[in-house]
Amino acid sequence: MAIDISQLSAEELEAALAKKKEAERLEREEKRRTYEELREETIEELGTAAHDLSLALERFNAKVFSQMRTLYELLQDYSKRHKDGKGNFEIKNDDFKILFKKQGKGTFDERSVQAEKHIIDFVNSKFENDVDTRDLIMSLLERKKGDLDVDLIQKLYAMEDRFDDDNWREGIRLLKESYSYNHSKDYIAFYKKGRDNRWIGINLNFSNF
């Protein structure tokens, strides 16, 4: 029902205005209380969930790296691969794939030069008339920007017990002793196979020093 304010006295106008202001104040107060209650509820709920999720991820991170490193060590032992490998490998089944990647740089020191000389002496004496074998072994000693290739040297290690020769054994020994690996981080990535058989990354970024 509309009120003709021209018919109201000054006291009635003041009372009506005061009532309106009080109603507006109560409305603001209710909105403020609703906001503050929702804010506190949101902080508590999301903060607690984030904290619990962080702890769960931390525990999972530790489990992931422990199991993958154990598996890698067993793989090295099982496959008789030397520790000079880069350490990158992946495991997968019909549903999931897990990639383990080591970040760092491997180098051979000055002893590798002496190792090369021993292996060259071996090759020249053992395969003097076998050019193909000699070239094959020598190709594994190829240097790139002055550095031996760890992957190629691994192939030499795989033939370590094949030849009974002092120069050969000494060369392999010096290669192993000359190698060092400057490790920085390990990374693990998870994938799930999609409907089109393509690997889709699971949104977990794990790295570990």
Rank of each mutant, 00 (worst) to 15 (best):
I3P: 13
S9W: 06
S9F: 10
E12Q: 15
L13W: 07
L17D: 03
K20S: 14
K20Q: 13
E22T: 06
E24Q: 15
E24N: 14
R25T: 07
E29Y: 11
E30K: 11
K31E: 10
R33E: 09
R33K: 13
R33F: 06
R33A: 09
T34D: 14
T34R: 10
E36I: 14
E36Y: 14
L38G: 02
L38C: 01
E40M: 08
E41H: 12
E41R: 12
T42F: 15
I43V: 13
I43P: 00
E44I: 03
L46M: 09
G47D: 08
T48S: 15
H51M: 04
H51L: 09
L53G: 01
L53D: 04
S54Q: 14
S54N: 12
L55F: 10
L55G: 04
L57P: 04
E58G: 15
R59N: 14
R59G: 05
F60A: 14
N61R: 15
S66L: 10
S66Y: 13
M68Q: 11
M68Y: 07
E73K: 15
D77E: 15
D77Q: 04
D77M: 00
G87N: 02
N88C: 06
I91V: 15
K92I: 00
N93K: 08
D95E: 12
I98D: 11
I98R: 07
L99E: 14
L99Q: 13
G104N: 07
G106H: 07
T107S: 13
S112T: 06
V113A: 13
A115Q: 00
E116N: 11
I119V: 05
S125Q: 14
K126M: 03
N129V: 00
D132S: 13
D135G: 07
D135C: 04
L136D: 10
I137E: 02
I137W: 01
M138I: 05
M138S: 01
L141W: 03
L141I: 02
E142A: 13
K144D: 11
K144P: 05
K145Y: 06
G146T: 02
G146N: 03
D151P: 00
D151Q: 13
L152A: 13
Q154E: 15
Q154D: 12
K155M: 09
L156K: 00
E160P: 01
E160Q: 14
E160R: 12
E160Y: 05
R162H: 10
R162D: 07
R162A: 09
D165M: 09
N167P: 01
N167C: 02
W168R: 06
G171M: 03
L174G: 02
K176M: 02
K176V: 00
S178Q: 08
S178E: 08
Y179I: 01
S180T: 12
Y181W: 11
K185V: 08
D186V: 01
I188H: 10
Y191A: 01
K192M: 11
K193M: 07
G194M: 04
R195K: 08
R195C: 00
R195Y: 09
N197T: 04
W199K: 02
W199G: 03
G201W: 06
N205M: 08
F206M: 15
S207L: 06
N208A: 03
F209Q: 10
